[in-house]
């Protein structure tokens, strides 16, 4: 199989997920120019590694895993101050959600707007943010998120829970004022 065919096959595989790639890079870097750089580098890496993609698992997770790793390398090299150690796990977040109230809480959450949500999601620690974006915006399954982020399924679930808990609290706090 010649390089042209490979490239065509790669394009067929990758292009449907190009916006997803950009979206993830944009959320991880929190900057449009940085996101463009990351996506370009990720696509080059993806093309280089395309030979190792055998169609097992979804093409989207395969591509997003490369975007994610590229973004982390890129942030380490160019934005080291933004790389924080993973937040300590302070117990089971599910324990805390339950005691926060009833329907008024749902109403406060529904009172959110785009700008507020974008800001609060961008403020989440990166490990939580990436799980939330992959789940809610890219609609990946837990298994796919585990494949993209390279962490066990249980960690995906607990990070997702914590991301949601932090967002819930912040929204309730801000919108109750």
């Amino acid at each position: 199989m010649g390089p042209d065919t490979d490239t065509a096959r790669f394009a067929e595989m990758a292009m449907p997920h190009f916006d997803a790639a950009y979206n993830l890079a944009r959320w991880l870097t929190r900057d449009p120019a940085d996101a463009s750089d990351v996506v370009q580098e990720a696509m080059l890496r993806a093309l280089r590694f395309f030979g190792s993609f055998r169609g097992g698992g979804s093409a989207k997770s395969w591509l997003l895993a490369i975007v994610r790793n590229t973004a982390i390398d890129w942030m380490r090299a160019n934005r080291p101050s933004q790389i924080a150690p993973p937040p300590a796990d302070d117990g089971d977040p599910l324990e805390n959600i339950a005691d926060q109230g009833d329907d008024p809480e749902a109403a406060l959450i529904r009172a959110s707007n785009r700008q507020q949500l974008d800001r609060l999601i961008a403020d989440l620690p990166p490990e939580f943010r990436e799980c939330l974006v992959l789940r809610e915006l890219e609609e990946l399954s837990y298994k796919e998120i585990a494949a993209v982020t390279g962490v066990p399924l249980g960690t995906v679930m607990s990070r997702l829970s914590r991301a949601r808990l932090l967002l819930q609290r912040a929204l309730v706090r801000e919108n109750a004022q």
């Binding site: 950009y22 959450i109 785009r114 999601i121 949601r164 929204l171």
Partner: peptide, 29 residues
Amino acid sequence: RCSADYASLKALSAAIRAQATRYTAPAEL
């Protein structure tokens, strides 16, 4: 009680899906 908690969680997920920005790749890129 659980169903109120679940309602909050669903409201959050729905709010994110409906409102949070899904960035699309710029045409130049």
